[in-house]
Amino acid sequence: MYSEQVMDHFMNPRNVGEIENPDGVGEVGNARCGDIMKVFMKIENDIIVDVKFKTFGCGAAIATSSMSTELIKGKTVDEALRVTNKKVTEALGGLPPVKLHCSVLAEEAIKAAIEDYKNKQAEKQTADSI
């Protein structure tokens, strides 16, 4: 039911873990539905220099977390925001229809982490200007 790429990213997930003092953190999903993705980012000059994830979920949830973090690593924040669930799914060689929501979750987790980063930046600027 899963492609080779999905199985590879499930068995050998890239970027698993946490980042201490991250510049952005995004957590989406909930345990009730059986999926939680938490993404940590280190961002320097608007470039995502490091990204890690932790995921509670099925094989597809873990694989999409792994692939989406791979796709945004080293990219600018704007580039990362253009990584859609469709791109993640394509990079994984497709997903079963019932698992497409996992790729949506991956996109949302990245967006949430970037939003967190932007909020923190805005706070900093406000603090600096005061």
Binding site: Y2, F10, D35, F56, G57, C58, G59, A61
Partner: peptide
């Protein structure tokens, strides 16, 4: 803390 399908796979 884990999900069943991932365990089955």
């Amino acid at each position: 803390f884990i999900e069943g399908e991932a365990l089955l796979l």
